[in-house]
Every structure is written in structure tokens, then in C-alpha cells.
Design a protein around this nucleic acid. Structure first.
Length: 571
DNA sequence: TGCGGCTATTG
DNA sequence: CACAATAGCCGCAG
């Protein structure tokens, strides 16, 4: 086992490092030697770098250091106790069995009521209550080399305590592996923010222009163009007063005037009414343009594309209850129509890989259902499910997805009974999760992430209480699958990141999209990486499945891989 | 100004 | 139209 080294870094000032188990190695490195020294340690020792959350991955990337192994105390903390918090205060409290609610609050500006007799020693990181001092948590740890070094030593303490907590979970092996992959995901987030996604601005502006016309010269012209778009929709409607297309109630009123009565004005509902009046079609076209104008238009490019032609957003390694990665700036919800603008740099290609039917495969793995596991041997696992149920492939798919989402009505509900008789173990796994969640009981994913259900809520027998309990059930049921899928995806991403780093410094992950990886590599490496992505998927599966992989029946994971220049060219 | 509702986009 | 997310605009309460 390689060494672990805690690092606390203050950009432009210096960094402290402390080897785990060897406090005498504590060392302060003065700027600007930090980059060289850390790179040397990385090259010589390949340690597992341990840090307090958030800033460190970004600071390391800025220094040109991209560690192979790390331990992000915040990422592990969120896995262990759920939720979104990852402040040093919360991490420390959990590691020391303290209630975070009792942590000291930061004193406000000095005033008449300040208790100067009990002013905290600014060099002391811990409050008498045992919590991290409010001042240190707020950043006072950065103020002197001695304090930064102490801060790194406290990270070591939490690192060891988190191992103790993981040992107590009962499934220590996989939670330890999850800690490693979740930490790697945090580092990857820093790298994704730094590197960005290549985008061709000329193509992007052209695509946007197809929806809303040329770039307006100023705000006044932008308002004029918008008014013209509004006018084009309203022209055939006799209007007494000005009705706003952006106001759903007004749109409902407009529809009523042309003889269409709807409960809401969502596109999927209006789609069926396109033939009834030209206004409906105009409205739907307007909606598309409006969306591009407000969210994915010229302003979006200006705000998020750098001078180097890279689209950048902020990344989070585990957001929401299920712990998926999230990204801002439209990186996770860019309309398909704009994807032709995502183009590899000259001399580079994208290697894109997306996991096939990841959630039902994950369900087979986490539930241990033998029949469903056998189905995963097919490239299209819905086919064997369909023939076993005696229904169409599409209906089988709807039923399986419905089971994972907690759907109780519609076509899928009928086929659900077939699933219950043919895949009872998987279905029991889901219904157990739903029942626990309905009762407000916390869940833990296969990888060890706690999904908090809020506990205290005691919903009465009223219909509102029942529906909230049912919503919790669906939420928890799905979190067990979606969360495990997110953990598996991050394991894959971590393996890919590591293999790319040893292949070529220019080969980098450019985008993570829940079940899809987009890798940006020199074109001569396209073939190797293409094969690699599939091999590394099998490696990730082997790691993630853990001890169950020795069983005769093993869940199979599949990926669709393509080497392309444009993101939109795949499939 | 903050927040819930509605809408659209993605996996 | 079930699960998750980001993000915009509108109306309304404070």
C-alpha cells in the first residue's frame, strides 16, 4: 500500500504536507516551489493525497498537478452521511461523533456584547466543545504556515476516522472502493472545469442564428427581435389586450380563443393538437426559439465559452440524494440541436462511449436477481425480458423502467405483474427500498452512500400525507438504482482517467454525462482509446462488482463506442 | 428580493 | 409524464 499524504494548499502562498502515520514529516513549502515539490512527490511516491474539500483539486490542477490517487474528505463525508454538506465543520463533527448542530457559529463583527474574556485563541483550531473553531472553518487556517500545517494534520486525523467509520458499515470493502472513486471524481471535476469542452463558436453561432436570427447589436435590438418573434405568433389571433406568450395562463387563454381547452400548455400535450389550429404550431416553434434565446443563445456563449474556445461550467462530483455528477452552463442539458458545435480540436478526435441500459443492469447487480443477471448477457437485455414475459420488447422496457421509477399506472403496470413472477428478487429489492423510504427510513446504496429520507416525518392518514409518503417511496426506490449507477459510472471514469494519464498527457476526459464519457485525444490515439474504453469498462465492472464477480453468473456491462470529430456524429 | 409554479432541455 | 438534474421567466408575498 502506497503512502498517504495530507496536503493543505494556499494558492500564491504555500502548502503544507503531512504523511499519514508520520507526523514528523510535516513540512511547509513556500511559493513558488509548491508546484515543483508536489509534482516531484507525485512522481516519486504516487501517494494518496488527502485534502479538505472543494478548493484543493482546482488548486492542484492550476499548478499542473493531477494526482493519480486521492481522498477527498468531503466526498467521503457525503457518501457516509448523505446530503450535500461537506464543510470541514460537518466532516470533523461526523468523524468525532459530534452533533453538527452544536458547532460554534462564527462571531459577527465586534460589538458591545462580545465576550472578550472568552475570545478564542486564533492559533487553536478546536473549540472547547470539540468542534472545529468557527474562525478556522471560515478560513483562518490559511493565515500562517504553522496553521496550514496543523490544518493538514487535522485532515490526516479525519482520514483515519473516516476509515474507522467505513469499517463499521458492514460492507467495508466496497465502501472503501467507493471512497476512492468518489474522490477521483472530485479531482476529475476540477480538471473538467479547467480543461472545458471544445466548442466551435462559428458553428454554434450559426446554429443559434437558425433559431433566433443574427446576434443583436445591443439590448434594444434584442428586444426588437424578441417582439418580432412574439408578433409572428400572435398575428393570426384577434387580441383585445396584450397577452404574454411567456405567461402560461395567458397562453391557455389564447388557446381557448381558437377553441382549444387544455389543463396545461406543455409541449407534449400541445403536440397532439398541432393540426387543430396553426396557432399551436406557431406557439411550439416560438417556444423553441424562446428557449434558445434565453438559455442557450448568444448570452450563453458569451458567459461560458473562453477565448480558447472551451465551454466551461462548474462541476460537482456527487449532487442530489443519489450522488450523480452535476454540471452547470448547460453541459448536461445542451439541446441536441446545438451538439454539432461540439467539435474536437485540430489533430484531435473525440472518443465517445455510452453505457447501454445501465440502470436495469445495475438493478440486476445490486439485487442479485439470477434471472435478470442472465438477461444482462444480451446486448439488448430487454429482449430476453420480453420473451420471458411474453410481451413486446417496447412494453418490457417500459415495464422495467416503470418498476425502477415506481410507476403504478399506464401500460407498464400490466406488465409489472409479469416482472414480479419472473424476476421476484429484483422486484423485491425495489419494493423493500420503497417501503423503507415511505416510512422515512434512510437507505444505503450498494456502494455505501446514505440516502437520507428525513426520518422524523410522520405523515398522517390524510391523502396529502399518503401521497408524500408515496413520493418518498418512488424517490428512495429510484435512488438505490440511480445512485448505484452513478457510483459505477464514477468507477469507470476513474479507471479511464488513470489509463489515459499513462497513455498521453493530452488525452483527457472532456465530458461526463451520467452514462456517457466523451474523451478528447490526439487522433493517432483514437483507435487505442476506443478499444480501451471497453476494456476499462470491464475492469471497472470487475472492481465494482467485487466479491460477487466470483459467482458463476456475472452481470455484463456494455458500451457503445465511437471515434468522431463532432459530438453529434455518434450513432 | 425570495420563492413556488410552469416550462424546457438532458440522462 | 413515473426518477434525477440546471435554468429561465412569471406572479405573488413580504
Amino acid at each position: 500500500m502506497s503512502a498517504s499524504v495530507a496536503v493543505a494548499l494556499v494558492p500564491d502562498v504555500g502548502a503544507a504536507i503531512v504523511h499519514v502515520g508520520a507526523p514528523e514529516t510535516a513540512r511547509w513549502i513556500e511559493w513558488p516551489d509548491v508546484a515543483t515539490v508536489l509534482a516531484q512527490i507525485e512522481a516519486d511516491e504516487r501517494p494518496r493525497w488527502v485534502w479538505w474539500p472543494h478548493d484543493t483539486p482546482r488548486a492542484l490542477v492550476a499548478l499542473g498537478v493531477r494526482p493519480a490517487r486521492c481522498w477527498d474528505l468531503g466526498a467521503v463525508h457525503r457518501m457516509l452521511v448523505g446530503g450535500w454538506r461537506s464543510s470541514p465543520t460537518a466532516i470533523w463533527a461526523t468523524c468525532h461523533d459530534l452533533d453538527v448542530a452544536t458547532a460554534p457559529r462564527r462571531a459577527g463583527a465586534p460589538d458591545l456584547f462580545s465576550d472578550h474574556d472568552h475570545a478564542a485563541d486564533p492559533d487553536e483550531p478546536l473549540d472547547p466543545s470539540g468542534h472545529v473553531s468557527a474562525e478556522w472553518a471560515a478560513g483562518a487556517w490559511r493565515d500562517t504556515p504553522e496553521r496550514v500545517t496543523r490544518w493538514a494534520a487535522l485532515a490526516v486525523e479525519c482520514f483515519l476516522e473516516q476509515h474507522r467509520l467505513i469499517d463499521q458499515l458492514g460492507a467495508p470493502t466496497i465502501a472503501l472502493a467507493t471512497s476512492h472513486s468518489e474522490s477521483a471524481a472530485e479531482q476529475l471535476c476540477g480538471e473538467l472545469e479547467h480543461d472545458g469542452l471544445p466548442i466551435d463558436l462559428v458553428v454554434a453561432e450559426h446554429l443559434i442564428a437558425e433559431f433566433i436570427g443574427r446576434r443583436p447589436a445591443d439590448a434594444h435590438e434584442a428586444a426588437t427581435f424578441a417582439a418580432e418573434r412574439d408578433e409572428a405568433v400572435l398575428r393570426h389571433i384577434p387580441v383585445d389586450q396584450r397577452l404574454d406568450l411567456r405567461n402560461p395562463a395567458n397562453v391557455k387563454a389564447l388557446l381557448r380563443r381558437v377553441g382549444i381547452e387544455v389543463s396545461d400548455t406543455r409541449a407534449w400535450r400541445l403536440e397532439e393538437l398541432r393540426d387543430q389550429h396553426p396557432f399551436v404550431d406557431d406557439l411550439l416553434v416560438w417556444r423553441k426559439a424562446e428557449r434558445v434565446s434565453t438559455t442557450f443563445g448568444y448570452g450563453w456563449l458569451d458567459a461560458n465559452v473562453g477565448a480558447d474556445g472551451r465551454l466551461r461550467g462548474q462541476w460537482s462530483g456527487s449532487d442530489g440524494a443519489a450522488g450523480r455528477m452535476t454540471a452547470t452552463a448547460g453541459l448536461h442539458n445542451m439541446p441536441a440541436d446545438l451538439r454539432p458545435a461540439i467539435v474536437a480540436e485540430p489533430g484531435f478526435v473525440f472518443v465517445r462511449a455510452d453505457l447501454g441500459q445501465i440502470e436495469p443492469r445495475i438493478l440486476a447487480a445490486v439485487s442479485g436477481d439470477p434471472a435478470l443477471t442472465i438477461a444482462t448477457n444480451e446486448a439488448d437485455m430487454y429482449a430476453p425480458v420480453a420473451s420471458r414475459l411474453g410481451v413486446s420488447r417496447d412494453l418490457a422496457k417500459v415495464a422495467v423502467l416503470g418498476a425502477m421509477y415506481g410507476q403504478t399506472t399506464g401500460k407498464g403496470a400490466e406488465a409489472l405483474r409479469g416482472l414480479e413472477t419472473n424476476y421476484p428478487i429484483a422486484m423485491r429489492y425495489l419494493s423493500d427500498a420503497a417501503r423503507q423510504a415511505e416510512g422515512g427510513n434512510d437507505l444505503r446504496t450498494r456502494g455505501g452512500r446514505l440516502v437520507r429520507m428525513g426520518g422524523g416525518d410522520s405523515d398522517g392518514p390524510d391523502s396529502d400525507g399518503r401521497s408524500r409518503a408515496a413520493a418518498r417511496g418512488r424517490y428512495g426506490r429510484n435512488a438505490m438504482v440511480q445512485g448505484a449507477a452513478a457510483e459505477f459510472f464514477k468507477t469507470w471514469a476513474a479507471v479511464v482517467r488513470a489509463r489515459l494519464a499513462s497513455l498521453d498527457d493530452r488525452a483527457r476526459i472532456a465530458l461526463c454525462l451520467h452514462d456517457e464519457l466523451v474523451v478528447h485525444v490526439p487522433e493517432e490515439l483514437g483507435g487505442d482509446v476506443s478499444h480501451g474504453l471497453d476494456d476499462w469498462l470491464q475492469e471497472a465492472a470487475y472492481r465494482w462488482l467485487g466479491s460477487s464477480a466470483v459467482d458463476a453468473a456475472v452481470v455484463r456491462f456494455v458500451a457503445d463506442v465511437s471515434v468522431i470529430s463532432r459530438w453529434s456524429d455518434a450513432k
